Computed example of a mutant assay.
Amino acid sequence: MKILLFLLTILFAVWLWRRNRLNALNERKSKSAETHPAPTPPTSEPSPMQACTQCGVHMPAADMVQGQRGIYCSQVHCQAASDTRV
């Protein structure tokens, strides 16, 4: 009878421990969801990638610099291309 009472006490303690642990995990998840909102998907379409005429680096077309002889990854490359006359 003593062993049965001892086992029931142990089982009850384990049950309490697990219940408290799960409650704490759920609270942490809900707090992190409140402080870190879900990322919103981008509303615009991605810009197509294009290669720099000078060095060949691919970048989004919206970030490229338009020059007289093509498109460039930076203003420096655009100026370098216009300085070298062939």
Rank of each mutant, 00 (worst) to 15 (best):
K2W: 00
K2F: 11
I3R: 13
I3K: 14
I3T: 12
L4Q: 04
L4T: 04
L5F: 05
L5Y: 08
F6K: 11
F6I: 07
F6M: 07
L8W: 06
L8D: 07
T9Y: 09
I10N: 04
I10R: 04
L11Y: 01
L11Q: 05
F12E: 00
F12Q: 01
F12C: 06
A13N: 06
V14F: 15
V14K: 11
V14H: 12
V14P: 04
L16H: 08
L16I: 07
L16P: 03
R18K: 14
R18W: 10
R18H: 03
R19I: 02
R19V: 01
R19C: 02
N20W: 06
N20M: 02
N20E: 07
L22G: 03
L22N: 12
L22E: 13
L22Q: 08
L22Y: 05
N23L: 09
N23S: 07
L25W: 09
L25A: 07
L25G: 06
N26S: 14
N26A: 14
N26Y: 08
N26H: 14
E27L: 11
K29N: 12
K29I: 11
K29Q: 12
K29Y: 08
K29W: 11
K31W: 05
K31A: 09
K31M: 07
K31N: 10
S32Q: 04
A33K: 13
E34L: 00
E34Y: 00
E34P: 00
T35K: 12
H36C: 09
P37F: 11
P37S: 08
P37G: 09
A38C: 02
A38Y: 09
P39I: 10
P42K: 15
T43S: 15
T43E: 14
S44N: 08
E45R: 05
P46N: 11
S47W: 15
Q50K: 09
Q50V: 06
Q50P: 03
Q50G: 03
A51Q: 14
C52H: 09
C52Y: 04
T53V: 10
T53R: 13
Q54G: 05
Q54W: 11
C55G: 14
C55H: 12
G56I: 11
G56L: 07
G56C: 10
V57M: 14
V57T: 13
H58Q: 15
M59Y: 05
M59L: 15
M59W: 03
P60C: 06
A61I: 14
A62Q: 13
D63E: 10
D63M: 09
D63Y: 06
M64D: 05
M64V: 10
M64P: 01
Q66C: 03
G67L: 08
G67C: 07
G67I: 02
Q68C: 01
R69L: 03
R69Q: 05
G70D: 05
I71W: 04
I71G: 05
C73D: 04
Q75L: 00
Q75F: 00
V76A: 12
V76I: 08
V76M: 06
V76R: 07
H77F: 03
C78V: 02
C78F: 05
C78Q: 10
C78G: 03
C78A: 06
C78H: 00
Q79R: 14
Q79K: 13
A80Y: 02
A81P: 00
S82V: 02
S82A: 08
S82P: 00
S82F: 04
D83Q: 09
D83L: 07
T84R: 10
T84N: 07
T84D: 09
R85G: 00
R85L: 04
R85D: 02
V86C: 03
